[in-house]
Design a protein around this nucleic acid. Structure first.
Lengths: 139, 139
DNA sequence: CGGGATCCGCACGGATACTG
DNA sequence: CAGTATCCGTGCGGATCCCG
């Protein structure tokens, strides 16, 4: 009934999603676009290692939930290492692993392109907004 | 009333967001993590120019809304150019601009890192899942 | 053919409260 | 100090219908 052309699309989508899931580039994009990942990597690359509270202060604006969650996923992926020292007030420090440092290097190239060309992008964007002349709330 | 320590945090967050909004790297990350941007750029880098329907087929799984929306934003940012040919059935083609091609180059480096190290990342991830050994429903 | 407009689900991310 | 657990709002992205 209703041959469901939609189902065919759904299947095609699933297959495509599977393809995407196997794509290393997409996986990497998903990692670094995690909103806080780039910031944490940058913060950790500057100093040696940082305590949880240090990161929390350094990245003012991040919730504990997101900080912990992101840190955990980065640790899970072997990009940062977590060290627990059972002192009187528990001390936990985080630092970049070799893999993490390597990734950070690539991120810097991205940063380079951004600093070199984002101005141009922003200019184009502004020009189009004037041309569009769409008043009201622009997202 | 209720001195609202929360308001202080809110202010700090707003300030931080403002800082983030001015960060070119963040802006770039936001652009390329747009879920379909990378795919469109890759599709367009292969061939010279593509029609809307070509892209739609090539990126099977994307909705027209997202495809159009992403294309528009890329055009707005001067990364792709849109050409309308008023034939009998309207023909619209998209192609990378110089800026877009430049960005695509950087994306390739990202791709290189991904293909070289994502396997390692995935291995670490799998190892941690075994170590965690949390039975039941894993969220 | 190439969209625009609209409705909606749901995952992502934030705020708050509690714990060891 | 360093989280964990829970609730909840927003916005992204998809589906559907309609238009030029």
């Amino acid at each position: 009934m209703t041959t469901t052309a939609a189902q065919k699309r759904a299947r095609a989508k699933v297959e495509y999603d599977a393809f995407l899931a196997a794509c290393p580039s997409r996986l990497l994009l998903a990692r670094i676009s995690d909103k806080w990942v780039a910031l944490i990597l940058a913060a950790l690359s500057g100093q040696r290692s940082m305590r949880y509270s240090e990161l929390s202060r350094r990245l003012a604006g991040v919730s504990q939930k997101m900080l912990t969650q992101t840190l955990r996923s980065l640790e899970r992926d072997g990009l940062v290492s977590r060290t627990v020292t059972a002192t009187v007030p528990v001390t936990v420090t985080y630092e970049l692993t070799g893999l993490g440092t390597s990734l950070q290097g690539v991120m810097c190239e991205l940063k380079g392109w951004a600093e070199a060309h984002m101005g141009e992008v922003l200019a184009n964007r502004a020009a189009h907004e004037v041309a569009g002349a769409a008043p009201g709330v622009e997202h």
